[in-house]
Design a binder for these strands. Structure first.
Length: 963
RNA sequence: GCAGGGAUACCCGAGCUUGGUCAAAGGGGCGAGGCUUAGGACCUCGUGGUUAGUCCUUCGUCGGUUCAAAUCCGACUCCCUGCACCA
């Protein structure tokens, strides 16, 4: 019995040997082809989970293959540490957020370490080491660890400063006002579902309210709306009688609005000052002049006006706003309420909705329709939100403005919305206010508001030139997977306009060189780092000092500008070092593959490409992108109860590293999300063990040579090598691993089952097999490689070449044939339920074989052509005799012949002697079915055939009679 | 809102770009047998319905193109995903 596969010790053994060798520190070699791959580095956000290892593992498998295919491979790793994640992490510890510390402890973090992690820099430092040592090295990644860098390293920051000066020179940096979310204590905060900065409101959206100005005597009542195009349908004005509004001076106007709105606007306007107050109830019953339509409309009371939404004042468009209509209905039905404010009920009842928009699926007044449809009774009904959204959606997408909308008549709502807004802004009838769709609370507990940033810095990704050259490059030069992403990339590049690239808060990152008050934000400092990886080993080793990294250095290293002698004088870097750096860059660049998760599709990958296009010459632009999807838990995140939440090193122990690597490679193609399913992972682990045991059995093989079977095994290996190579070259890891880990194994089994036992051929096959496994499951491959007595690392051996094995198509075909016969016999046995004592096989008569040969001939020259076959056949006297049979058989023959349409196969088929082959295989079949097996020719006179089965024989499908 | 993806047999998942060789790869699960009777390990066969190896009906729904469609076209229904200063 073989020793059990001791994964932990085998893993440790080979990892030590690899990392003690120089595999991971490649040097440029003249004349040797190179391959440069990186994965989008992870943000330092704490412990990672097994899902993250999927894409990283792809990277290692691909680069291992390339290395074995004769490439010099550069595969650097790094960590993204700028932005607020490290800080957010520290703050979570300080605030003792539930669950946070538990996760740390579960991952083996002790109290003292947790205490130290209150410092964001320690977070970066600590987790960088975890990523390298506990994840990537533990998984056996032959990455170029010398390159490791994080985005807050001083050298990296010099690089980013250089990059931003380059962007500036290219005219891609500019400033303009911007409205962003911010906390009054902490400055700018990100509002997003991950809620790194905030404690509540992650799903809030930025909303733009158009502020409509209504004349009310000398003052202006300001109503906020999300639908400026509906001003044509205004019938009245809503105010909450129970709210105290404020008067505020804005420029030379006096506005009436809620105090909350005035507060919000104070962060968005330079000159707003609250000057007084006015009770809502005091305004009820007055009239205002509605903008655009210039109509006098009455002010009515309502309870739905929320002072914290918009301005707390609302213009009423009952045709298209469910709230407005139901509030009117409420008021009509409540004479007492009218009385209270001195309103004439009849006047209220006289208000008629004004149809302004035709939407698909709705009549004149969509709001009324939907209220009736949903059975909404009054303005307190919570479903009004839903109704509003529904109408908004229908109106926005399908609506067309009515004839009563002036110059906008007939215009689609999507267009009219902005046109009407712009017109009002231009004429001074309206203003704009930004708000969040729901309350957002900062981590510090303060409310998050929308704030005007008058001089926000942007990168102009809308630059026509950069956009166009990037699009063309994607189309003509880049290898992007999946193909759908390649197809949509040009549209994404077009869509990408300006992007805010720096912030004023207290974040980790590089100061904007043009204005050091700003810190460059984390997307914008991670677009060109594949270039920095080339020089980071020098900085890590101390042969280039951070202070020597001036712009001239980067210009020389990355652009080849300047002279090394002069540069050496100005920087103090030796000329040889400078020349080596430049040579490295020349050799390794461009990047061949940037591999990253699907979250990068709309932001990182496009800006990554466009920065290259803007700064580097075209022959240094990236050649490829591979996007990988995620691993999730059932119905969402990975979790303790459903598995997959354990620390990565624990998973590696439990499932073995090779098991996990095989799982990632084989479970699905890279372009779908995968649910972490522990049964599947265990199965992958089992496969590793199975291969271990099976390989040991194969090593014991000690039989005789059998030319047919040996050649068959070799031929199969040839096929597998050819197809695996093709799959790997196309980055189809699933296809390749399926072949290597399942099909090759099953071929070895078949070989043994048929009686193959040649130790030389077996060892030769195993030698290739192990090399093919190596990119996927390097640890077991190395161990088996060593046991087989091979020298050196399998990791640095040559991936099998197509010519290593003999290939004989006729033998491949013959084995397929015997399997078909076996399957047919099994089928009959299953149907009849009999236990055979004798099996008789009858090969097809000569005339059928002849006709079959004709069919193959015709097929070789083109497509199936029944007419020609019949014509040709009838010319032969022996065929003519049995013309009826011939025509019946011809249709079938052409169909079967289709199987041999392959040029090699049809030749083999023509020369194949079925009877002889079956006779040689009869002892095998006899063993399989445990009975006597006889082979006859169907046209042999007087053959034993009690049930007259032999007439059913076809070429490659012998007739079968079973007793 | 902008952009994109998918619906395949008990389950997961190939295949669809280049229509025929697709009843539809490969796993898992389940069933039968073997091997072992030490740890649910391993091997073989089966797993739409039928019949001596055939034939029939299937690849979200409806319709179309074609001698021929899971594969091409149109419509529909239902799921999912990314992005919006999060990386």
């Amino acid at each position: 019995m073989v020793d059990e596969f001791n994964a932990p010790s085998v893993e440790a053994k080979w990892q030590k040997r690899w990392f003690d060798s120089d595999i991971c520190s490649p040097e440029p070699e003249d004349g040797k082809k190179k391959f440069y791959l990186m994965f989008a580095y992870p943000g330092v956000s704490g412990y990672l989970h097994v899902g993250h290892m999927r894409g990283y593992t792809y990277s290692d498998v691909i680069t291992r293959y390339k290395r074995m295919d004769g490439y010099n491979v550069l595969f650097p790793v790094g960590a993204h540490s700028s932005g607020n994640i490290a800080q957010a992490f520290s703050r979570k510890i300080e605030r003792n957020i539930p669950g946070h510390i538990e996760i740390l402890k579960a991952n083996g973090c002790d109290d003292a370490q947790i205490e130290r992690l209150k410092d964001p820099l320690e977070v970066v430092n600590f987790f960088s080491h975890i990523y390298i040592n506990d994840y990537w090295k533990k998984f056996g990644f032959l990455a170029t660890y010398d390159c490791f860098t994080t985005t807050i390293d001083p050298g990296y920051q010099r690089f980013i400063e250089w990059q931003f000066r380059k962007l500036d020179k290219a005219g891609m940096l500019f400033q303009k006002p911007y409205f962003g979310s911010a906390c009054l204590n902490c400055g700018p905060v990100a509002v997003d579902a991950s809620e790194t900065d905030i404690s509540q409101g992650g799903s809030a959206e930025k909303q733009e309210f158009t502020l409509l100005k209504f004349k009310l005597g000398d003052e202006i009542a300001v109503a906020g709306t999300l639908r400026p195009e509906t001003v044509f349908g205004q019938t009245n004005f809503w105010i909450n009688p129970d709210v105290e509004y404020v008067k505020a001076r804005v420029g030379d106007e006096t506005w009436i609005l809620s105090s909350e709105a005035a507060q919000k606007l104070s962060f968005q306007k330079d000159d707003i000052e609250v000057t007084g107050r006015v009770a809502g109830r005091d305004l009820v019953g007055k009239t205002v002049i509605a903008p655009v339509v210039d109509r006098e409309i009455p002010i009515f009371p309502s309870s739905f006006c929320d002072p914290d939404v918009g301005t707390g004042l609302v213009t009423s468009v009952p045709s298209d706003a469910p709230y407005d209509w139901i509030a009117l209905v409420d008021l009509m039905n409540d004479p007492a309420e009218c009385e209270k404010y001195g309103l004439d009920v009849e006047m209220v009842k006289a208000i008629k909705p004004i149809p302004i928009i035709r939407s698909k699926g709705y009549g004149e007044n969509p709001a009324i329709e939907i209220i009736e449809k949903m059975g909404i009774q009054n303005q307190e009904d919570e479903r009004l939100e839903e109704a509003t959204k529904e109408i908004y959606k229908a109106g926005f997408h399908t609506g067309v403005m009515n004839d009563n909308c002036g110059e906008y008549a007939g215009m689609a709502v999507t267009l009219a919305k902005d046109k009407v807004k712009d017109m009002m802004l231009e004429k001074g009838l309206a203003d704009v206010m930004y708000d969040l769709s729901e309350p957002v609370i900062c981590r510090c507990g303060e409310k998050v508001i929308m704030k005007k940033i008058p001089d926000q810095w942007f990168i102009d990704y809308g630059d026509d030139n950069v956009t166009e050259i990037s699009k063309a490059f994607v189309r003509d030069e880049m290898n992007i997977l999946p193909p759908e992403y390649k197809d949509s990339m040009p549209a994404t590049l077009d869509w990408f306009k300006e992007r805010a690239c720096a912030r004023l808060g207290n974040w980790l990152g590089t100061k904007l060189p043009q204005d050091p008050r700003w810190i460059i934000e984390p997307i914008s400092d991670s677009t060109l780092y594949s270039a920095y990886y080339i020089i980071s080993p020098y900085i890590n080793a101390g042969s280039i000092k951070e202070e020597q990294l001036n712009d001239e250095f980067f210009d020389f290293a990355f652009l080849g500008e300047g002279e090394p002698d002069a540069l050496s004088t100005s920087t103090g870097i030796p000329v040889e070092t400078l020349e080596k750096v430049r040579n490295d860059f020349d050799y390794w660049y461009p990047l061949d593959i940037n591999l990253g998760g699907k979250e990068h599709m709309t932001v990182h990958f496009p800006v990554f490409l466009m920065n290259h296009a803007a700064i580097l010459p075209e022959n240094d632009w990236p050649r490829g992108i591979i996007v990988n999807w995620w691993i999730s838990g059932k119905g969402g995140k990975l979790s303790k109860s459903k598995g997959g939440a354990q620390p990565i090193p624990d998973a590696a122990r439990l499932f073995t590293v090779d098991g996990l690597r095989l799982y990632y490679s084989h479970i699905a193609n890279p372009f779908v999300d995968v649910e972490w399913d522990e049964a599947s992972v265990k199965n992958s682990r089992q496969i590793i063990k199975r291969i271990w045991n099976f390989a040991h059995e194969l090593m014991e093989v000690n039989g005789k040579a059998d030319n047919t079977l040996d050649t068959w095994l070799e031929s199969r290996m040839s096929t597998h090598i050819n197809d695996s190579r093709k799959a790997m070259d196309d980055f189809e890891l699933r296809e390749a691993s399926n072949r290597i880990f399942f099909e090759i194994m099953s071929d070895f089994r078949w070989y043994a089952r048929r009686g193959g036992a040649n130790p030389e051929v077996t060892k030769k096959g195993m030698n290739a097999w192990i090399r093919m496994m190596a990119p996927f499951t390097p640890h077991i491959a190395e161990e088996l490689w060593e046991k087989m007595g091979s020298q050196g690392f399998v990791s640095t051996s040559q991936f099998p070449e197509f010519g290593e094995f003999e290939i004989d198509n006729s033998i491949l075909m013959a084995e397929d044939f015997i399997r078909d016969v076996q399957a047919d016999i099994t089928g009959i046995l299953k149907m009849t339920g009999m236990t055979p004592t004798r099996i008789c096989l009858y090969t097809a008569p000569a005339w059928k074989n002849k006709l079959f040969g004709m069919g193959l001939d015709i097929l070789q020259n083109g497509r199936i052509d029944m007419g020609q076959l019949m014509k040709q056949a009838m010319a032969e006297p022996d065929m003519k005799q049995r013309s009826k049979e011939v025509s019946a058989f011809a249709g079938r023959i052409m169909k079967d012949a289709g199987k041999f349409s392959d040029a090699d196969k049809d030749k083999a088929a023509m020369d194949f002697d079925e009877a002889e082959f079956l006779r040689s295989a009869s002892s095998f079949l006899g063993k399989e079915f445990n009975c006597l097996v006889d082979v006859f020719l169907a046209d042999e006179p007087g053959v034993y055939d009690p049930q007259n089965k032999r007439n059913g024989a076809f070429p490659f499908k012998p007739a079968i009679y079973i007793e």
